[in-house]
Amino acid sequence: MAENQLTVQLLLSGLFFIAAIGIDLYKEKIPNILSLLAIFSGFAINSFYAQLAGLLMAFLGLALAFVVLFPTFLIRVLGAGDIKLMMGIGTLMGPELLFSSLLYGIVAGVGTTVLLTLWKTGVHGIKKTIIRYWQCFYLRSYFKPDPDEAAGQKVPYAPALALGWLCACALDQNVINLYQLWHQHLLMGVT
Rank of each mutant, 00 (worst) to 15 (best):
N46P: 08
S47W: 14
F48A: 12
L52T: 14
A53E: 06
L55A: 15
L55N: 11
L55Y: 12
M57K: 09
M57P: 02
M57I: 05
A58F: 01
A58S: 15
F59W: 06
F59M: 10
L60R: 07
L64A: 15
L64E: 00
A65Y: 06
F66W: 12
V67Q: 07
V67L: 14
V67G: 04
L69K: 07
F70C: 13
F70K: 05
T72H: 01
F73Q: 00
F73W: 14
L74A: 12
L74S: 05
L74I: 00
I75W: 11
R76N: 14
V77S: 07
V77R: 05
L78P: 01
L78N: 07
G79V: 09
G79C: 06
G79T: 10
G81V: 05
D82E: 06
I83F: 00
K84H: 05
L85K: 07
M86Y: 10
M86S: 00
M87G: 01
M87D: 10
G88K: 04
G90T: 15
G90I: 15
L92G: 11
L92K: 03
M93D: 06
M93V: 13
G94M: 02
P95V: 15
P95D: 06
E96Y: 05
F99D: 09
S100Y: 12
S101H: 12
L102A: 06
L103H: 08
L103G: 03
Y104D: 08
V107N: 09
A108D: 03
G109F: 09
G109N: 09
V110M: 03
G111Q: 08
T112M: 09
T113K: 11
T113D: 03
V114I: 14
L115I: 11
L116E: 01
W119F: 12
W119N: 13
K120Y: 12
T121Q: 02
T121R: 06
T121M: 06
G122H: 07
G122N: 02
G122I: 02
V123G: 00
H124S: 15
H124F: 02
G125K: 11
I126N: 09
K128C: 04
R132S: 09
Y133S: 13
Y133K: 01
Q135T: 06
C136G: 00
C136H: 04
F137Q: 08
Y138M: 08
Y138P: 05
L139G: 08
L139Q: 14
Y142Q: 08
Y142R: 10
Y142L: 07
Y142E: 00
F143T: 14
P145I: 01
D148C: 00
D148P: 10
E149T: 04
E149V: 09
A150V: 07
Q153M: 13
Q153Y: 05
V155R: 12
V155E: 11
P156V: 14
A158S: 13
A158P: 00
A158D: 02
P159T: 01
P159R: 10
A160P: 03
A160E: 08
L161M: 01
A162R: 13
L163H: 04
W165G: 00
L166I: 12
C167R: 00
C167E: 11
A168V: 00
C169R: 11
C169Y: 00
L171G: 04
L171Y: 06
I176S: 05
L178R: 13
